[in-house]
Design a protein around this nucleic acid. Structure first.
Length: 279
DNA sequence: CGCCAGGCTTCTA
DNA sequence: TAGAAGCATGGC
């Protein structure tokens, strides 16, 4: 991998196989928007960028060197060697199919609070509506930065009431978001401490929040706390495990089983015919 | 229109 | 303590 700093763009080469579409559409994040030219515009950690891919090159447009180094390099998980990980996955026949279907997925390192809050809102919900709720959340309570809105902090949300969140139309999830915002902002749940914890300990910490169970906690840990061994089991993964891994999910992927999980999730969700039709 | 959505909490036997 | 009911809303 090589990095080139040019006048108006930063180019990262040597990323053959990386797909922005697979990465942004696989259900791990909800805010990136595709432009007519195929690039994507997004905001994270209070910084905005536009990214595109040409051949094996990831290109950051109108992005400062500092933002790339302090935000986007880590956000796009550029220190991880996905080629080697995928070679490992391909030893398993099902994961091989996942890699062939959408091997361009990388797990993003999102803002911890955004990941937690987003997946609280995701429960018993569909992705199109989750996006709408999160969009309204940011527009109502985030900070306007250029043409986009930051994700509102736990502190910003902690002083709000359920009534304040009514415009989001998040239903019963609103009270869960408020409980999370309060416990995170007052230190009852220490997000920074979770980075030093195991995934198991992280689950114990996050499930102190009302409305956060093992699945939501696992998603937050995988997508916001660099816990690549966190393994969220939703209805799709549950069905996939029952029909495709009756002997259990292979142990050899333990360290990166969260990544494998995401490849599997995206594959079975968009190829419903590979799972038994009856529920 | 009815089913279901990247579940969780609460109730019930 | 396992399993079902209830939950808000709207995409498809």
């Amino acid at each position: 991998m090589d990095i080139f700093y040019e006048k108006n763009k930063i180019i990262v080469s040597g990323l053959a196989g990386f797909s922005l579409r697979d990465t942004f559409a696989c259900g791990q994040c909800f805010r990136w928007e595709e432009n007519p030219d195929g690039s994507y515009r997004g905001i994270a950690f209070g910084h905005i960028t536009t990214v595109s891919i040409q051949e094996d090159r990831l290109i950051f447009h109108e992005t400062s060197r500092q933002d790339f180094q302090t935000v986007w390099f880590d956000y796009f998980d550029l220190s991880r060697d996905y080629d080697t990980i995928k070679i490992g996955f391909c030893k398993d026949p099902t994961l091989k199919k996942c890699v062939e279907f959408a091997g361009g997925i990388r797990i993003l390192n999102q803002e911890p609070w955004e990941a937690l809050c987003s997946f609280i809102l995701s429960q018993n919900n569909n992705i199109a509506r989750i996006k709408g709720i999160i969009s309204r959340l940011c527009e109502h309570f985030g900070d306007k930065l250029g043409d986009l809105y930051s994700f509102p902090s736990a502190k910003q949300l902690s002083s709000l009431s359920e009534n304040d969140l009514a415009p989001l139309r998040a239903g019963f999830r609103s009270k869960y978001v408020l409980d999370a915002a309060r416990k995170v902002s007052d230190g009852t749940v220490d997000l920074n401490a979770i980075f030093k914890m195991s995934a198991e300990e992280g689950i114990a910490e996050l499930t102190e929040i009302n409305g956060v169970g093992i699945k939501v906690a696992s998603c937050a840990l995988l997508f916001g706390f660099k816990k690549s061994d966190a393994f969220p089991v939703d209805v799709w993964i549950k069905r996939a495990l029952e029909s495709l891994y009756p002997q259990g999910f292979p142990d050899e992927f333990v360290c990166e089983r969260g990544i494998a999980q995401q490849y599997l999730f995206h594959y079975v969700r968009l190829n419903k015919d590979i799972l038994p039709s009856s529920r």
